[in-house]
Design a protein around this nucleic acid. Sequence first.
DNA 1: TCCTTAATAGTATCATTGATACCGTTTCAG
DNA 2: CTGAAACGGTATCAATGATACTATTAAGGA
Lengths: 175, 175
Amino acid sequence: MAEELSPSAYVVLGLIARHGPMTPYELKARVEDTVGYYWPIPHAQLYRDPPRLAERGLLEERAEEHGRRRRVFHLTGAGREALDRWLADPTSGPPETRNPALLKLTFVDLGPSERATALARQQAAQHREWLELYRNQLAENDPARPDALARARLLDVGIRHERAYVDFWEELAGN
Amino acid sequence: MAEELSPSAYVVLGLIARHGPMTPYELKARVEDTVGYYWPIPHAQLYRDPPRLAERGLLEERAEEHGRRRRVFHLTGAGREALDRWLADPTSGPPETRNPALLKLTFVDLGPSERATALARQQAAQHREWLELYRNQLAENDPARPDALARARLLDVGIRHERAYVDFWEELAGN
DNA sequence: TCCTTAATAGTATCATTGATACCGTTTCAG
DNA sequence: CTGAAACGGTATCAATGATACTATTAAGGA
């Protein structure tokens, strides 16, 4: 049984499966405005994963014949199977959150007490912005896009998430 | 102006500031049952950071004199200042969430539709467990501990977070 | 008392990441 | 026709993540 792939590799497979053959540059653009929100991938990684997947036979590289010979990656049968095996398994690794503001909150009481309030105000404002952003994106979600359903769901969870954080920080800031 | 430290370095400084001089092993134990929930740090890192901080003069290493000569790290004046500068700044880097289940959800519609439901059920159960866990920990939070206030706040945000996710996945699973 | 196991305490290693800098090619506005 | 912006990608290097490995001390039972 072939070894597990990295999460970013599944993103690559998934995006190519859904939208068709792609160059790393296009992957980068697609990641930035979708998956990147909840699974950041530095762009250099999107130039590293596809060749590796090609080595394992899960993608196939075909250079463009004319003009700028970009490296276009196609999904192979093996690639689709690998993706499918992953999707068929309803279990997932635990989520990891890295929230520098919570880190600061952990230790903020070592200093004067106004600091917690300042931090909370700042964070409340920040999360309100994201909440707005996701609400707008949901309102403008184009149902014709092949990823419309996925986008809607993920914006939904994003909105719930931000609401929880707005509430938390606002309360901490003293309403 | 000395360069920024890594987040894990601030955790080290903060824990030593709050609880007193510590060995990397003790740091590891403390991280595991507190900060680790929302900022995972592999234990090897807690053996790498303190010596580096000592080189910069933010910690001071004193080997124990007798028995097992463990490496105990003390906070220096410069260390306390660095920590304080960080705490004084109410801004923070953006949070990063890496949630493999959301990744799977993004692409799950490439397969048969039962899969989304299976994933949702599984996730709902998982998040309900965490929610319970945090609620219990909050109920048992010992007010005598020096980090009692911090713990209470972080459990509060953890609970709100888990509630949001339980709601999301339950709804997706079809109530 | 000796032996075994568990817990404590730490080091080593290596592939992968993350962050950034850098470089060449098209395209297009002025 | 030229300069800037967007496109498309490679290179580099320290830091991290994952794991395996080693050694010491404590504790309990034979």
